[in-house]
Simulated assay, not measured.
Amino acid sequence: MRQRRFLPSQSQLLALEAVVRRGSVTAAAEDLHLTQSTVSRLIQSLEAQLGRELFTRQRKKLIPTDAALTYQRDISRALDMIQRASMSLVTNPGGGVLSLAVLPTLATRWLGPRLGGFLGSHPGISVNIATRIEKFSFETEIFDAAIYFGNPDWPGARSFKLFDERVTACASAEFLERNPVSEPADVAALQLLQLETRQTGWDDWFAGQNATFTGATGMLMDQFSMMIQAAISGLGIALLPDYLARTEISENRLVPILKPAVPTSGAYWLIWPGEKDNYAPIIAFRDWLAREVARDRNM
Protein backbone atom coordinates (compact mmCIF):
# COMPACT_ATOMS: atom_id res chain seq x y z
CA MET A 1 0.00 0.00 0.00
CA ARG A 2 1.24 3.47 -0.88
CA GLN A 3 1.19 5.93 2.01
CA ARG A 4 -1.02 8.89 1.12
CA ARG A 5 1.12 11.26 3.17
CA PHE A 6 3.91 10.78 0.64
CA LEU A 7 1.64 11.16 -2.37
CA PRO A 8 0.88 14.90 -2.57
CA SER A 9 -1.74 16.11 -5.02
CA GLN A 10 -0.79 17.04 -8.54
CA SER A 11 -1.75 20.65 -7.80
CA GLN A 12 0.70 20.80 -4.91
CA LEU A 13 3.52 19.28 -6.95
CA LEU A 14 2.90 21.55 -9.91
CA ALA A 15 3.00 24.55 -7.59
CA LEU A 16 6.31 23.45 -6.05
CA GLU A 17 7.86 22.71 -9.45
CA ALA A 18 6.77 26.05 -10.90
CA VAL A 19 7.89 28.17 -7.94
CA VAL A 20 11.38 26.62 -7.91
CA ARG A 21 11.70 26.71 -11.70
CA ARG A 22 10.48 30.28 -12.14
CA GLY A 23 11.99 31.68 -8.96
CA SER A 24 8.89 33.43 -7.60
CA VAL A 25 5.27 32.84 -6.65
CA THR A 26 4.14 35.53 -9.08
CA ALA A 27 5.79 33.89 -12.09
CA ALA A 28 4.59 30.44 -11.00
CA ALA A 29 1.03 31.73 -10.70
CA GLU A 30 1.22 33.08 -14.26
CA ASP A 31 2.45 29.70 -15.54
CA LEU A 32 -0.28 27.78 -13.75
CA HIS A 33 -3.06 30.32 -14.42
CA LEU A 34 -3.72 30.61 -10.69
CA THR A 35 -3.70 33.47 -8.21
CA GLN A 36 -0.62 34.12 -6.10
CA SER A 37 -2.53 33.34 -2.93
CA THR A 38 -3.62 29.97 -4.33
CA VAL A 39 -0.04 29.03 -5.17
CA SER A 40 1.10 30.10 -1.70
CA ARG A 41 -1.62 27.98 -0.07
CA LEU A 42 -0.63 24.96 -2.16
CA ILE A 43 2.98 25.32 -1.03
CA GLN A 44 1.91 25.66 2.61
CA SER A 45 -0.33 22.61 2.40
CA LEU A 46 2.49 20.57 0.78
CA GLU A 47 4.88 21.53 3.59
CA ALA A 48 2.25 20.61 6.17
CA GLN A 49 1.59 17.25 4.53
CA LEU A 50 5.28 16.36 4.36
CA GLY A 51 6.07 17.85 7.76
CA ARG A 52 9.05 19.67 6.29
CA GLU A 53 9.76 23.30 5.41
CA LEU A 54 10.69 23.57 1.74
CA PHE A 55 11.17 27.34 1.58
CA THR A 56 12.48 30.10 3.78
CA ARG A 57 10.43 33.32 3.77
CA GLN A 58 12.35 36.54 3.17
CA ARG A 59 10.35 39.74 2.63
CA LYS A 60 7.42 37.85 1.09
CA LYS A 61 9.77 35.87 -1.14
CA LEU A 62 10.06 32.07 -1.07
CA ILE A 63 13.67 30.83 -1.12
CA PRO A 64 13.88 27.07 -1.76
CA THR A 65 15.99 25.00 0.60
CA ASP A 66 18.59 22.57 -0.73
CA ALA A 67 16.15 19.75 0.02
CA ALA A 68 13.46 21.53 -2.01
CA LEU A 69 15.80 21.88 -5.00
CA THR A 70 16.52 18.14 -4.95
CA TYR A 71 12.83 17.34 -4.47
CA GLN A 72 11.88 19.62 -7.37
CA ARG A 73 14.30 17.87 -9.75
CA ASP A 74 12.81 14.48 -8.88
CA ILE A 75 9.25 15.77 -9.09
CA SER A 76 9.94 17.38 -12.45
CA ARG A 77 11.13 14.04 -13.88
CA ALA A 78 8.07 12.27 -12.46
CA LEU A 79 5.69 14.84 -13.96
CA ASP A 80 7.45 14.47 -17.31
CA MET A 81 6.95 10.70 -17.15
CA ILE A 82 3.25 11.08 -16.33
CA GLN A 83 2.79 13.56 -19.18
CA ARG A 84 4.60 11.36 -21.68
CA ALA A 85 2.65 8.27 -20.61
CA SER A 86 -0.64 10.16 -20.97
CA MET A 87 0.34 11.49 -24.40
CA SER A 88 1.29 8.00 -25.52
CA LEU A 89 -2.05 6.62 -24.33
CA VAL A 90 -3.97 9.30 -26.22
CA THR A 91 -1.96 9.13 -29.45
CA ASN A 92 -1.42 5.36 -29.56
CA PRO A 93 -3.91 3.52 -27.33
CA GLY A 94 -3.58 0.18 -29.14
CA GLY A 95 0.18 -0.16 -29.52
CA GLY A 96 3.47 0.22 -27.76
CA VAL A 97 5.70 3.25 -27.41
CA LEU A 98 9.47 3.27 -27.77
CA SER A 99 11.25 6.23 -26.19
CA LEU A 100 14.73 6.29 -27.67
CA ALA A 101 17.90 8.29 -26.93
CA VAL A 102 20.18 8.58 -29.97
CA LEU A 103 23.44 10.29 -30.82
CA PRO A 104 22.56 13.54 -32.66
CA THR A 105 24.26 13.01 -36.03
CA LEU A 106 23.49 9.29 -36.11
CA ALA A 107 19.84 10.20 -35.58
CA THR A 108 19.68 12.62 -38.50
CA ARG A 109 22.05 10.93 -40.95
CA TRP A 110 21.69 7.19 -40.36
CA LEU A 111 18.57 6.35 -38.34
CA GLY A 112 16.23 9.11 -39.50
CA PRO A 113 16.19 8.27 -43.22
CA ARG A 114 15.46 4.59 -42.40
CA LEU A 115 12.92 5.03 -39.63
CA GLY A 116 9.95 5.19 -41.98
CA GLY A 117 10.62 1.57 -42.88
CA PHE A 118 10.34 0.53 -39.24
CA LEU A 119 7.16 2.51 -38.64
CA GLY A 120 5.64 1.19 -41.85
CA SER A 121 6.23 -2.43 -40.85
CA HIS A 122 5.17 -1.84 -37.22
CA PRO A 123 2.14 0.49 -37.40
CA GLY A 124 1.18 -0.19 -33.78
CA ILE A 125 4.43 1.23 -32.37
CA SER A 126 5.11 4.92 -31.80
CA VAL A 127 8.71 6.12 -31.54
CA ASN A 128 9.79 9.14 -29.51
CA ILE A 129 13.37 10.30 -30.08
CA ALA A 130 15.64 12.63 -28.14
CA THR A 131 19.36 13.18 -28.57
CA ARG A 132 21.95 12.31 -25.95
CA ILE A 133 25.74 12.37 -26.26
CA GLU A 134 26.85 10.96 -22.92
CA LYS A 135 25.80 7.93 -20.93
CA PHE A 136 22.83 8.32 -18.60
CA SER A 137 20.93 6.23 -16.06
CA PHE A 138 17.75 4.48 -17.18
CA GLU A 139 16.58 4.84 -13.58
CA THR A 140 16.50 8.63 -13.79
CA GLU A 141 15.73 9.18 -17.49
CA ILE A 142 12.48 8.30 -19.24
CA PHE A 143 13.98 6.27 -22.09
CA ASP A 144 13.30 2.67 -23.03
CA ALA A 145 16.55 2.28 -25.00
CA ALA A 146 19.52 4.17 -26.41
CA ILE A 147 21.83 3.98 -29.40
CA TYR A 148 25.29 4.73 -28.07
CA PHE A 149 28.93 4.69 -29.20
CA GLY A 150 31.62 3.12 -27.05
CA ASN A 151 31.53 -0.06 -24.98
CA PRO A 152 28.43 -1.89 -23.70
CA ASP A 153 29.31 -1.36 -20.05
CA TRP A 154 26.16 0.30 -18.71
CA PRO A 155 25.29 -1.19 -15.28
CA GLY A 156 22.25 -3.46 -15.39
CA ALA A 157 21.71 -2.92 -19.13
CA ARG A 158 21.44 -5.30 -22.08
CA SER A 159 23.17 -4.59 -25.37
CA PHE A 160 23.07 -5.44 -29.07
CA LYS A 161 26.02 -4.55 -31.29
CA LEU A 162 25.12 -2.62 -34.43
CA PHE A 163 28.45 -2.05 -36.15
CA ASP A 164 32.09 -1.20 -35.51
CA GLU A 165 33.22 2.29 -36.29
CA ARG A 166 35.59 3.00 -39.14
CA VAL A 167 36.78 6.55 -39.75
CA THR A 168 37.99 8.54 -42.73
CA ALA A 169 39.90 11.81 -42.58
CA CYS A 170 38.33 14.45 -44.84
CA ALA A 171 38.89 18.08 -45.76
CA SER A 172 37.57 20.55 -48.29
CA ALA A 173 39.23 20.68 -51.71
CA GLU A 174 40.21 24.32 -51.06
CA PHE A 175 41.86 23.39 -47.75
CA LEU A 176 43.90 20.65 -49.43
CA GLU A 177 44.97 23.01 -52.21
CA ARG A 178 46.46 25.28 -49.55
CA ASN A 179 47.79 22.36 -47.51
CA PRO A 180 48.87 19.47 -49.76
CA VAL A 181 48.93 16.05 -48.08
CA SER A 182 50.99 13.11 -49.34
CA GLU A 183 51.85 11.28 -46.09
CA PRO A 184 50.68 11.11 -42.44
CA ALA A 185 53.35 13.58 -41.30
CA ASP A 186 51.69 16.24 -43.48
CA VAL A 187 48.39 15.64 -41.70
CA ALA A 188 49.93 15.83 -38.23
CA ALA A 189 51.14 19.38 -38.92
CA LEU A 190 47.61 20.67 -39.76
CA GLN A 191 44.54 21.65 -37.76
CA LEU A 192 42.83 18.39 -36.78
CA LEU A 193 39.19 18.78 -35.74
CA GLN A 194 38.34 16.72 -32.67
CA LEU A 195 35.17 15.34 -31.09
CA GLU A 196 34.81 15.46 -27.30
CA THR A 197 33.60 11.87 -27.11
CA ARG A 198 36.31 10.47 -29.42
CA GLN A 199 39.47 11.41 -27.56
CA THR A 200 41.51 8.60 -29.16
CA GLY A 201 40.12 8.99 -32.68
CA TRP A 202 43.18 10.56 -34.25
CA ASP A 203 45.47 8.09 -32.49
CA ASP A 204 43.50 5.25 -34.09
CA TRP A 205 43.63 6.93 -37.51
CA PHE A 206 47.39 7.44 -37.45
CA ALA A 207 47.88 3.87 -36.25
CA GLY A 208 45.82 2.75 -39.24
CA GLN A 209 48.23 4.70 -41.47
CA ASN A 210 51.18 2.88 -39.82
CA ALA A 211 52.36 6.21 -38.45
CA THR A 212 53.13 7.61 -35.01
CA PHE A 213 51.23 10.56 -33.58
CA THR A 214 52.03 13.01 -30.78
CA GLY A 215 48.69 14.78 -30.29
CA ALA A 216 46.08 16.72 -32.25
CA THR A 217 45.95 20.49 -32.55
CA GLY A 218 42.61 21.92 -33.54
CA MET A 219 39.07 22.82 -32.55
CA LEU A 220 37.20 20.60 -30.07
CA MET A 221 33.49 19.99 -30.81
CA ASP A 222 30.64 17.97 -29.34
CA GLN A 223 28.82 16.91 -32.54
CA PHE A 224 29.83 15.56 -35.93
CA SER A 225 27.45 17.95 -37.69
CA MET A 226 29.51 20.88 -36.37
CA MET A 227 32.73 19.17 -37.39
CA ILE A 228 31.46 18.59 -40.93
CA GLN A 229 30.54 22.23 -41.37
CA ALA A 230 33.88 23.35 -39.94
CA ALA A 231 35.74 21.12 -42.40
CA ILE A 232 33.64 22.33 -45.34
CA SER A 233 34.46 25.89 -44.29
CA GLY A 234 38.18 25.08 -44.44
CA LEU A 235 38.88 25.20 -40.71
CA GLY A 236 40.73 21.90 -40.59
CA ILE A 237 40.55 18.16 -41.21
CA ALA A 238 37.53 16.22 -39.96
CA LEU A 239 37.74 12.62 -38.77
CA LEU A 240 34.35 11.15 -39.69
CA PRO A 241 32.65 7.78 -39.21
CA ASP A 242 32.54 6.06 -42.57
CA TYR A 243 28.72 6.28 -42.87
CA LEU A 244 29.09 10.08 -42.71
CA ALA A 245 32.27 10.34 -44.75
CA ARG A 246 30.76 8.40 -47.68
CA THR A 247 27.88 10.86 -47.92
CA GLU A 248 30.04 13.98 -47.77
CA ILE A 249 32.51 12.56 -50.30
CA SER A 250 29.80 11.45 -52.75
CA GLU A 251 28.30 14.95 -52.64
CA ASN A 252 31.75 16.50 -53.32
CA ARG A 253 31.57 18.47 -50.09
CA LEU A 254 34.72 16.86 -48.66
CA VAL A 255 37.72 14.97 -50.03
CA PRO A 256 39.15 11.81 -48.37
CA ILE A 257 42.76 11.83 -47.18
CA LEU A 258 45.14 8.86 -47.41
CA LYS A 259 43.81 5.44 -46.31
CA PRO A 260 40.01 5.55 -45.72
CA ALA A 261 37.77 3.51 -43.38
CA VAL A 262 40.32 2.98 -40.61
CA PRO A 263 39.05 0.83 -37.67
CA THR A 264 38.74 2.54 -34.28
CA SER A 265 38.40 1.29 -30.71
CA GLY A 266 34.65 1.55 -30.40
CA ALA A 267 31.30 0.43 -31.78
CA TYR A 268 27.67 1.47 -31.96
CA TRP A 269 25.28 -0.35 -29.63
CA LEU A 270 21.59 -0.56 -28.87
CA ILE A 271 21.30 -0.46 -25.07
CA TRP A 272 18.19 -1.10 -22.94
CA PRO A 273 17.49 -1.84 -19.24
CA GLY A 274 17.36 -5.49 -18.26
CA GLU A 275 13.82 -5.29 -16.92
CA LYS A 276 12.58 -4.45 -20.43
CA ASP A 277 14.01 -7.57 -22.08
CA ASN A 278 10.52 -8.69 -23.05
CA TYR A 279 9.14 -5.28 -24.03
CA ALA A 280 7.67 -5.84 -27.50
CA PRO A 281 8.68 -2.47 -29.06
CA ILE A 282 12.34 -3.03 -28.07
CA ILE A 283 12.34 -6.56 -29.49
CA ALA A 284 10.81 -5.34 -32.75
CA PHE A 285 13.23 -2.41 -33.00
CA ARG A 286 16.27 -4.58 -32.25
CA ASP A 287 15.28 -7.13 -34.90
CA TRP A 288 14.70 -4.37 -37.45
CA LEU A 289 18.07 -2.79 -36.68
CA ALA A 290 19.74 -6.17 -37.16
CA ARG A 291 18.25 -6.42 -40.65
CA GLU A 292 19.30 -2.87 -41.52
CA VAL A 293 22.88 -3.48 -40.38
CA ALA A 294 23.05 -6.78 -42.28
CA ARG A 295 21.78 -5.07 -45.42
CA ASP A 296 24.46 -2.36 -45.10
CA ARG A 297 27.13 -5.01 -44.60
CA ASN A 298 26.11 -6.78 -47.81
CA MET A 299 25.99 -3.66 -49.96
Rank of each mutant, 00 (worst) to 15 (best):
I232M: 00
L32G: 06
F175M: 03
V262L: 13
I283E: 01
F136W: 02
Q44R: 15
F118M: 14
A48L: 11
W154P: 01
S99W: 02
M219T: 15
P113Q: 11
I283L: 12
G234H: 01
P123L: 12
R295H: 12
L106N: 01
A284M: 12
N210K: 13
A245K: 11
M299F: 03
K135I: 00
R166Y: 06
L115V: 13
I237N: 12
T197Q: 13
W269L: 10
E30R: 11
G120P: 08
G234L: 02
S9C: 04
L106V: 07
G234S: 00
Q44G: 06
F206T: 03
L7F: 02
F6T: 02
G94H: 09
R166K: 12
L89S: 14
S121L: 09
G124E: 08
M299R: 10
V102L: 11
T217L: 09
G117E: 15
G96E: 00
S24D: 02
G112V: 10
S76E: 14
M1F: 09
A290F: 07
L79K: 10
P180W: 02
F160R: 14
Y148S: 10
E196V: 14
I75M: 15
A67K: 08
G274R: 11
K161W: 07
G208F: 11
R166D: 08
Y279I: 04
L115Q: 14
W288C: 13
L115R: 08
L162P: 15
R109A: 06
W269Q: 06
I133F: 00
H122I: 14
D203G: 12
K276E: 15
R109G: 01
S233P: 08
V293P: 01
P260L: 11
F285L: 08
T197S: 12
A290I: 07
Q223L: 06
A157H: 06
Q3K: 08
Q229F: 05
W154G: 05
S159G: 04
D80G: 12
A267F: 04
I257Y: 03
A27G: 05
S233H: 13
F213S: 05
D204K: 12
S233K: 15
G208I: 07
R291M: 08
L220G: 12
S45E: 14
A130D: 10
E292D: 03
Q229H: 07
L119D: 00
L220K: 11
V97W: 07
A15G: 05
F149W: 09
Y148A: 13
G156F: 01
E165A: 04
R59P: 00
F160W: 10
D164L: 08
N298K: 09
V19N: 00
W288Y: 05
R73P: 05
R57P: 02
R41F: 04
Q12I: 04
A28T: 04
